[in-house]
Every structure is written in structure tokens, then in C-alpha cells.
Design a binder for these strands. Structure first.
Lengths: 134, 134
DNA sequence: CCTTTCAGATTACAAGCGTAGTCCTACGTA
DNA sequence: TACGTAGGACTACGCTTGTAATCTGAAAGG
């Protein structure tokens, strides 16, 4: 039984950095700063701090490129999103998807596309269900 | 134009306390401790600290009952859940519900009931959609 | 009355987070 | 060769969070 490695906890600010690297990697800190400049007015130093912390947490790995580092995600956006979604759903909705979706719908209303997508998705899930059941 | 009051940020530990009060309120600290004793082995002092912080944040209000307080939620579970769901969906899924559900499905697989519930929900949403469109 | 005791108020204290600043060194440039 | 400079390493610092402990006053019990 291999002990489950706890997925590193990524903070809000750190997540912004991860997003950049999920979009493209490897990248040096300077490029990440450039990419973030639009949304956040962060000092490059701030970004470097976040990068170091992410490396500490093993959310990123680095490779040397001359005298600087290139950063690469160690955890995928996929897996992060899955964990986050599951955590929320468990914590607030008893792990059930329907109430969660209901809450999303509330107030804002899902678009027609959202609904269409969900229908397709449900159809797929039912197909899989069959496969697994049998 | 009334300024939107930012919903108080409730931390993990604080949320456990809120859950108790969402289930039943008003309650004194001692009863909350009793309710939490099963899941968390927290010192009553810890719970009182959390309660004070929640009052500070205006997530709870109090009424005197003799020499103690009774606590009552100022924000509903509903609204908290809605905000949390929306925040997650916006941050990680571009505000779209389908990918979020897809991620929930992944790995764990939604149960048949989940899927059934979602279908009903979608049907309802389509009904509303019509009403709104027209 | 005096003492134990329970509630809230105040204080503690380390780890995590947001946001940088300082130090030191290797590079490229005049 | 001397100098500014880009980068990483280390340090900083106030705020939040998790988790209590201590102080204080009032209530209850003997």
C-alpha cells in the first residue's frame, strides 16, 4: 500500500503563477512575469517568491538554463482541478454533483450551451456506466 | 447604488462551526462543542476562538442568554455554497459548469442517482430557459 | 460568605500567505 | 578592467489561521 502523497496546497496567488505555466512551459521567471503583468501588478520579486514556494511544495520543478531556471509544472491543471472540484463538492454538497450544479445555476443561470454540454456529458456518463456495470 | 458587501471569508475550521449552526441555531458554544466532538477533537477554547472570529467577520450574530451567548448564522449555507461554487467554477473552469461536472465524474464516477438528479435538473433548467427566453 | 467553576475577553504563538527588499555573483558591455 | 545588471538565495513583515492558555467576573454550591 503506497502512502498517498498529499497534493501540495496551492494558494490563490500561487495559482495564478501555475496558470501561466499550465498554458506554456517551461518558462523562466521573467517570462512568467511578463505574462502576468497584464492582470496583476506584481513586483518580479513577488513572482520569484511564489515560484520558490511552489518549487518547495513540489508543485514545480526546474531545469537550469544558463544562469537562470526554467519552471515546469509537476502537477497538471487537470489533476488540480479535479481535486479542487471534488473537495468543494464533498465539503459543501455531500459529494453530490447535482446540488452543486443547481447552485451554479442559481442566480446566474446556466447558458444554453452549458446545458447542452451537460446533456452530452450525461449521455457519455451513462454509456460508461453501462460498460462498467456489465 | 448600494455597495455590495463582500461576503466574509470563512476558513476551513470556521466552516465546521458554521455547519453546526446551519444545522441548528441558535446554540450556545457548549452545544456547538458537543456537536463537533465527534468529528474534531478540539478544545472548547478553540471553538470559542473560532466563534469570536466569526462574529468579528459578521458571519454570526449573538444574543445574550443569561451569562452566555447564543450564536446565529448571519449568512446562509445556501448563499455561502453558491458563492463558493461560483468562485471555484470561475477560477478553474472559466465559469462553465460542464467541465466542472466532468472533473467530478472523472475517477470517482458519478453515481446513477447523481446522473438521474442531474437529468431532472437539466430538464427544469430548460423549462426555465424557455420561460425566460420568451 | 468563601470557593470552585463556567462563560466570555484577552493574549499567545507558530505556520502559511501576500508582497517585497537586500545580498551576492556571474555576465555582458564600454 | 570596472560597472551596471539580471538572477537566484535569503530575509522581512504584517495578516490570517489553527490551536490553545490565561485572566476576570459572575454564578452556584457548601
Amino acid at each position: 500500500m503506497n502512502k498517498k502523497i498529499s497534493p501540495p496546497k496551492i494558494s490563490q496567488a500561487e495559482l495564478s503563477v501555475m496558470e501561466v505555466l499550465w498554458a506554456e512551459s517551461p518558462l523562466p521567471a521573467s517570462d512568467i512575469a511578463k505574462a502576468l503583468a497584464a492582470q496583476k501588478k506584481w513586483n518580479i520579486k513577488t513572482i520569484k517568491t511564489l515560484l520558490s514556494r511552489l518549487v518547495d511544495k513540489q508543485a514545480l520543478s526546474t531545469t537550469k538554463d544558463g544562469r537562470r531556471y526554467l519552471y515546469i509544472p509537476l502537477i497538471s491543471r487537470e489533476s488540480y482541478a479535479t481535486t479542487a472540484a471534488r473537495t468543494l463538492s464533498d465539503r459543501l454538497f455531500g459529494g453530490r454533483a447535482a446540488p452543486l450544479v443547481a447552485h451554479l445555476a442559481e442566480g446566474k443561470g446556466l447558458s444554453d450551451e452549458d446545458i447542452a454540454e451537460l446533456e452530452v456529458l450525461l449521455a457519455d456518463l451513462k454509456g460508461e456506466g453501462l460498460k462498467n456495470e456489465r
